[in-house]
Amino acid sequence: MAARIDHLVTSGTFALDGGEWDVDNNVWIVGDDTEAVVIDAAHDAAAIEAALGGRTLRAIICTHAHNDHIDAAPALADATGAPILLHPDDLPLWERTHPDRAPDGELADGQELEVAGTRLTVLHTPGHAPGAVCLHAPELGTVFTGDTLFQGGPGATGRSFSHFPTIIDSIRDRLLTLPPETAVRTGHGDSTSIGAEAPQLQDWINRGH
């Protein structure tokens, strides 16, 4: 059976630089009827485990380490035995949320993860966070962008560990090079496509340089 993409929305709080905001997060599950990976274990480990429906969880993949994307990761790992994978450049952010529990493995640019016969290629896309990554699944015609690219433009860069010119470079060099029909499945809000975002992103690129 070919891999499919399941989608769950969880709600909680994003906290950074002394502020807190209520947020809804997209949790993406990629797999088949027997195994899966979770992209961003946000807020509610029990709900994510229920959505897995008894499938073997191969990995918990973190697009970055802002607390709203990783707060449920340790509990989900404990419940399933799955390793938590994070790009090492985001360890300083991870440690703010989970000082006593390190990730189990590292993500690296160009690394390929496989689940249910489907490849997920890691694209290091810093800017929103130093260790932010996107996950390109060409067989599914999809890229999971975390908070790097949204419907309407780049992710926020107004807080600690973020940098606007860097996120613009990441989007231009790593995401706009993907096929225009590629679906963009984001960390918050509605999905979009590379082709839909490319024209307006040129305006952001001009502003950033």
Rank of each mutant, 00 (worst) to 15 (best):
R185H: 11
Q200W: 11
H98P: 10
G153F: 10
D89A: 15
G189W: 00
I168N: 05
L91Y: 08
L91G: 00
T192I: 05
L16T: 11
V27L: 02
P154G: 11
R101A: 10
G153E: 10
I29E: 02
A132Y: 07
W94T: 05
F161E: 13
G105M: 04
S160V: 04
R174W: 01
L120W: 08
F161R: 11
L57Q: 07
P165Q: 10
L140P: 00
F144A: 09
D68C: 12
E112Q: 13
D147T: 03
P103G: 08
I70H: 08
I194N: 06
P138T: 06
A2E: 10
P99L: 06
L107G: 04
A73T: 07
P99D: 02
G31M: 07
A79E: 06
A129D: 12
T182L: 07
E181M: 02
A65Y: 12
A65R: 10
T157L: 10
R185G: 00
L120Y: 08
L57D: 07
L113I: 15
V133E: 00
F144L: 14
S170K: 04
L149S: 11
P126G: 03
R172D: 13
V122H: 06
E114G: 04
H87A: 13
H69L: 09
R4C: 02
E197V: 05
D32H: 09
P138S: 12
T34S: 13
S162R: 11
E106F: 03
L178K: 06
I84M: 14
A82Y: 07
I48R: 11
E114F: 00
G18T: 10
G187Y: 04
G54E: 09
G195S: 09
T10G: 09
A137T: 05
I60N: 08
D190R: 12
G153T: 09
V184R: 01
A102V: 00
W21R: 15
G146F: 03
I171T: 04
I194L: 03
P154M: 06
G158S: 14
S193V: 00
R55E: 10
L86N: 04
P126M: 05
P88E: 01
Q111Y: 01
R55K: 09
P138I: 01
A156P: 00
A42T: 02
E112L: 10
G189S: 03
D78T: 13
D33G: 13
A137R: 02
H163R: 14
A116E: 03
D33Q: 13
H7W: 08
G131W: 03
E95L: 14
A45F: 02
C134H: 05
G110H: 08
S170C: 06
V9T: 14
W94A: 07
D169A: 15
D109N: 15
